[in-house]
């Protein structure tokens, strides 16, 4: 049923693919975290443009990521923008989670006491300086745990990239399966890898959270 020699044979191949998965996660999260902050800031600064952002966020959040990946990979080339599979996939994941992250940042902004804004006006700080030096430093630390949760969620969505043939972990496991007709070991190993990585990062986030609370 379970073949250990075969397991050790495919382990290096899967380990190499795991690097691709981690790369996609890191790049996707960088996009999500920065774009999310930009979206939330637009909402904060320009109420009129904010309505557009709200509708956009709602749109992105209520359609499946898989369809969005297909959209970027298959529909954009029709408009003359050709992306390779990895770029399209990472961009789709990044934009999808940017919508979620923007809500997280928004909650952070709303948590800053109004007196801070009023004091900044009283001190004659420019809106930009108020935002950069007063609001952001207070808004960001409380939302770190929530962002961490989305990092884990994003990490677990990366197998979707296998649908557009990015050679990440799941796709590699599928390939091994179709070459050797043995799915048990590769798919189980992928599951174990995700479980271990999620538990480890959940632990790290919990530590970060308690560290932030102690400060």
């Amino acid at each position: 049923m379970w073949d250990w020699t075969f397991t050790f044979e495919i382990l290096p191949v899967l380990a190499r693919a795991a690097i691709m998965t981690v790369e996609a996660t890191a790049l996707g999260f960088v996009i999500a975290a920065t774009l999310g902050l930009v979206l939330a800031s637009i909402r904060l600064a320009f109420p009129v443009a904010g309505v557009v952002v709200t509708v956009l966020v709602e749109l992105i959040r209520s359609t499946p990521l898989l369809i969005q990946i297909f959209f970027l990979y298959f529909v954009l080339p029709k408009a003359g923008i050709v992306l390779d599979a990895f770029t399209a996939g990472v961009a789709a994941i990044g934009i999808h989670y940017a919508a979620y992250c923007s809500e997280v940042y928004r909650a952070g902004f709303e948590n800053v006491p109004r007196g801070q804004w009023e004091a900044s006006i009283a001190l004659n700080l420019s809106p930009w300086n108020t935002f950069k030096d007063i609001i952001l430093p207070q808004a960001l630390p409380p939302v770190v745990p929530a962002l961490g949760n989305y990092l884990i969620a994003l990490f677990k969505e990366t197998p979707l990239l296998s649908a557009i043939a990015v050679l990440e972990l799941m796709q590699t496991a599928k390939n091994i399966g179709s070459e050797t007709f043995r799915y048990t070991e590769p798919v189980t190993l992928v599951g174990v890898f995700f479980l271990v990585m999620s538990l480890v990062s959940a632990g790290i986030i919990r530590m970060l959270e308690s560290w932030l609370q102690r400060r």
Binding site: T158, P159, M170, A173, K174, G191, F194
Partner: peptide, 10 residues
């Protein structure tokens, strides 16, 4: 802790 796609495939 594991992704839905992996569960589906498993």
């Amino acid at each position: 802790g594991t992704s839905a796609l992996v569960q589906l495939f498993w």
